[in-house]
């Protein structure tokens, strides 16, 4: 089984977001970078499926040169091949992102044969467009299931479970298929030291993507003005217990 996973490099923001002066980006001077937890799980799922069934695994990203870090993270946990669609680091909208990924997938399939399964995150961590996977699947005329919390592939069919009120809904999709996964579908492994060393030495393939006009068109980012205040300190250490319990009674929690 040949599997492709699409991931996006995003800043790991902590307790507060700070913007650049032009308000078009998060100030990332002091931040590390990761991919969305959904995509980390997509990577893990691809590794497990190829471990169980054989075949190849490839990771694809559209992003700046520095996104090779995230590609190497994926290779460190077992993805075999990595492809970078290099940008100048500016934010590409969902339409442009999907078009570039689709073109790259077509090119990869033209030389390497079709992917049986293409995995996405359900939504990217930063822009949260909830659409790139569906746009790519539609352009490739493949079945897509989103929100996957369990995935099984048997005899040319992907069976997906997703959460629904009171339980689960089951979807089936004929291969080749596209599946957008959510965190919780698996527990991703940590990379091993030899895995990291191996990934460091691997070649990364590069394509130059074309940017098609799309939208929505970013005007500026806004840090929400949520009420930040200071907490009433009920005490220090276990001696605070009586005041905590008095508070619990007062608000009706007891």
């Amino acid at each position: 089984m040949n599997i492709l996973v699409c991931v996006k490099r995003v800043p790991a923001t902590g307790g507060r977001m700070t913007l650049t002066a032009d308000e078009r980006d998060i100030d990332t001077k002091f931040l590390g970078f990761v991919v969305s937890p959904h995509e980390e799980c997509a990577v893990e799922e691809a590794v497990r499926l190829t471990e169980a069934n054989g075949g190849t695994s490839t990771v694809l990203t559209l992003g700046p040169e520095a996104a090779t870090d995230q590609l190497r993270d994926a290779m460190a946990v077992g993805i075999q091949r990595a492809v970078l669609l290099e940008t100048d680091g500016s934010d590409w909208d969902s339409v442009a992102t999907a078009a570039a990924l689709t073109a790259a997938i077509r090119a990869l399939e033209a030389t390497g044969g079709p992917f049986d399964l293409i995995l996405f995150g359900n939504d990217s961590a930063d822009s949260g467009g909830f659409q790139v996977g569906i746009r790519v699947a539609t352009a490739l005329d493949r079945a897509i299931v989103t929100g996957a919390k369990a995935l099984e592939v048997t005899g040319g069919t992907a069976t997906v479970r997703r959460e629904a009120p009171g339980g689960w809904e089951v979807f089936e999709a004929p291969l080749p298929a596209v599946v957008a996964v959510r965190e919780g579908i698996n527990l991703p492994r940590y990379p091993s030291v030899p895995g990291r060393l191996r990934a460091k030495k691997r070649e990364i393939e590069r394509f130059v993507p074309a940017r098609v006009p799309g939208g929505p068109e970013l005007i500026r980012l806004i840090v929400p003005s949520e009420s930040e205040g200071s907490a009433e300190i009920l005490g220090t250490g276990p001696d605070a217990a009586p005041r905590v319990v008095a508070m619990l009674r007062e608000i009706g929690a007891l």
Binding site: M17, D126, G128, G215, P216, L218, I219
Partner: peptide, 18 residues
């Protein structure tokens, strides 16, 4: 001109929607 949530509402974006 629309305002939408990024980061599940941790950040907002003003954008043109055509």
């Amino acid at each position: 001109r629309i305002v939408r949530q990024r980061w599940a509402g941790g950040l907002l974006e003003e954008a043109w929607l055509d």
